[in-house]
Simulated scan of single mutants.
Amino acid sequence: MSSLPVCAILDDYQNAALAVADWSALEGRVELRRFGAHLGGEEEVAAALQGVEVVVAMRERTPFPASLFARLPDLKQLITTGARNRSIDLEAARAHGVLVTHTRSAGNPAAELAWAGMLAALRNIPAEVQNFRDGGPWQQGLGRSADGKRLGILGLGKLGAKCARFGQAFGMKVAGWTRTDLPARAEALGIMPLPLEQLFETSDVVMIQMSLVPETRGFVTPELLALMKPDALLVNTSRGPIVDEPALIAALEAGRIGGAVLDVFGTEPLPQDHPFRRLTNVLPTPHIGYVTEENYRVYYADAVENIVAWLDGAPVRVMG
């Protein structure tokens, strides 16, 4: 039986972790265990990780609350891909003697996915592709152009700013709202600052680019959704709980808004019977905003470096 410390690689859905990085620096020093499927709830996670000293977690797919740390007495280092992970209780980690480290990332691929989803929805690309494959009529619908439409961006941080520049490049009338210093941020981007309600009332596309913090949970309320134009599109590639999910489902089912592009959900993986899986005015993707080859190469190369540094007694990229 191996006496090496065990490193568990979690939620490696694409079987990519060992392929995109060089793990040879850990040969003879660490035993690797890869989990390709989501382990499940806390009971399953705790059972699977008994005896594990190092965990490489993929973003927020597997939460690490205080109750889980208490059930993992052998855990010494928890690595999260990316610079932030709100599903890890850092205070509990410290209390249980667990070092939490992070990795870097490559660019802002989530902004690219938001843009790709918006364009696909405006031009009805998923329906057109399916009709094409099914041998239906050569053309069946009318798409809409982004040029000249108002793009309202909720949140003007790094991702919001990138999407604002995308909008400008596509000839959109870009407006924005953010919780802090709206006039200065809007001026720096060359976009129109709008009050929150006016942004929802007047935008053809409302794009959410906010972080999930206690103040933004449920931020997009039923009242804000009710202000949207009947043909407006809601794009959310940030975090599912920012939007009141039952209210969004009701608006989509009633056809009160034009549609939604969603890459994030309150529960992930999304249950098979969830309305978002059947609604034809939803363009859903399974939280792939950060899932690119370039990003994964950085994630896992840094994870290897973090483990080596920890083994050598000089940890790097420590959180908290």
Rank of each mutant, 00 (worst) to 15 (best):
F64R: 07
G266C: 14
V308K: 04
Q198M: 11
M207K: 01
E253N: 10
T62A: 06
F35P: 13
T103I: 05
E293A: 07
E187I: 01
W138P: 10
Q209L: 08
R104Q: 12
T101D: 11
F132G: 11
A106H: 15
A146M: 13
A95T: 06
S238M: 06
V282N: 07
G240R: 04
G171D: 14
G160I: 10
A17N: 06
A169F: 03
R150H: 09
H274C: 14
Q50H: 03
R217F: 11
E42N: 00
A48S: 14
R179A: 15
N281I: 10
N295G: 06
L39S: 08
R34W: 02
P5G: 04
A254T: 11
L233N: 05
P137M: 10
L156C: 00
R297P: 02
T285F: 09
L26I: 13
G266N: 15
P284S: 14
F69W: 07
T237E: 07
M207T: 01
L122H: 03
G82W: 09
R317G: 07
L113E: 06
L279Q: 10
G51E: 08
P241S: 04
P65E: 05
T280W: 05
V243Q: 08
T62G: 01
Y296A: 10
T180D: 09
E187K: 07
E53V: 07
S2M: 03
E60I: 00
L194E: 13
P63I: 08
F69T: 05
A226L: 01
M210W: 01
R34S: 13
Q168S: 12
T80A: 04
N108T: 12
G259W: 02
S87L: 10
E293I: 05
P241D: 04
L224S: 12
F35S: 08
P241Q: 06
S87Q: 11
G258N: 06
P269K: 02
L199K: 05
V220N: 06
L26G: 11
S87V: 14
D302L: 05
H102K: 12
G266A: 13
R61S: 14
L18E: 13
H274F: 08
G160D: 07
R104T: 09
L199G: 12
R239D: 12
G152Q: 07
L154K: 06
A309D: 11
Y296G: 03
G255P: 08
L26S: 10
Q77W: 01
P65R: 05
S145H: 15
E91H: 04
D302F: 03
F219L: 14
G51C: 12
D147F: 15
A247R: 00
V213K: 10
R239Y: 02
A175I: 05
F219Q: 09
A70Y: 04
T80K: 02
G171W: 10
P183N: 03
L39R: 04
G82T: 12
L4D: 13
D312L: 01
I208S: 00
E223T: 03
A247F: 03
D89H: 06
R165Q: 15
F170C: 12
L159D: 09
W115N: 09
R217E: 15
V54I: 15
F170V: 06
V316T: 14
P214A: 12
L252I: 09
V205T: 01
L182S: 02
A164E: 02
L270E: 11
Q272S: 12
V56C: 12
T285E: 14
D147W: 10
